[in-house]
Nucleic acid binder design. Structure first.
Lengths: 146, 146
DNA sequence: CTAGGTGCAAAGTATTTGCAACGCT
DNA sequence: AGCGTTGCAAATACTTTGCACCTAG
């Protein structure tokens, strides 16, 4: 980890109201060092090279700290359980970032997106759906009350 | 469950190459009777009213059977573990339905979608991302070999 | 110095698996 | 009749929690 990165991370933490710790810095660095979207376990394995005594629980706690502070986002919806979509016809989703509930949105409610740039070689596109993220009325209300 | 629905379900199973069983019919009916996207546990609770001795494992197996046959789709990405997004700037996702890996796609690679219809009352939209679903080159290749 | 962060072990969820009995075709 | 499906119980995977110690501010 270079000095410049340390400085960046301190600044990042300040902006999000977080305490700077060695563990957090290393976990953050590890996260951005992956090209994809690693599981907590994978992050743990990589971080262990630098902090052998770190625990997986710390990785989990830190990821949630990062998410809660807004430093990074949770990738799409993670309900913690399997969900299926019974609608056959194409449609989109309205996702509440508060309670994680998903409402279906008619295809007609959106002007379609269109691919114009290039995508990774060999990827075979099957369909495109739009996810509209935000707060449902319930979550918006309870947030206002706090 | 009415006769007409039974007939529909038989037909649906035939189209997807599945054996028709009582459990599958009841699970399918239960699924479409929910307005949202229930967890396996919630499906189980509802199905138990009709088949008291059904097991949660059967619900899981059946959901996977439905997904694998293409009778219904998995809602968004379910990695079975927590994933985060480190990129700060707006971007979209390319999701492989085979291996579940996610590639980031530059905002510029897509003509943006635009909301034109109405959405549920009180929902506060924060951002919109497009998910492009398909097969990555690896998965496309290994599928061809089978 | 002290509030909050960390490591460890144990507890909680979520999901899968092995296997014998059963039901569809 | 034969093979795939089901129910059950046990195993595994994923995540959170409680608590004593440690560390950043």
């Amino acid at each position: 980890m270079q000095v410049s990165e340390q400085v960046d991370f301190r600044e990042l933490c300040r902006r999000h109201g977080l305490t700077v710790t060695h563990q957090r810095a290393v976990i953050y660095d590890s996260l951005i060092s992956f090209s994809g979207h690693p599981s907590p376990e994978e992050v743990y394995e990589r971080v262990r090279n630098l902090i052998p005594r770190i625990s997986l629980a710390t990785v989990y706690k830190t990821l949630h700290t990062f998410i809660d502070s807004g430093m990074l986002r949770e990738l799409s919806l993670h309900h913690g359980s399997l969900r299926v979509d019974t609608k056959q016809d194409p449609h989109h989703h309205l996702v509440c970032t508060g309670c994680k509930s998903v409402f279906d949105l008619d295809e007609a409610a959106l002007k379609p997106a269109k691919l114009v740039g290039k995508i990774p070689k060999g990827f075979r596109v099957e369909r495109m759906t739009v996810e509209v993220h935000g707060l449902c009325s319930n979550c918006a209300r309870s947030l206002r009350q706090n």
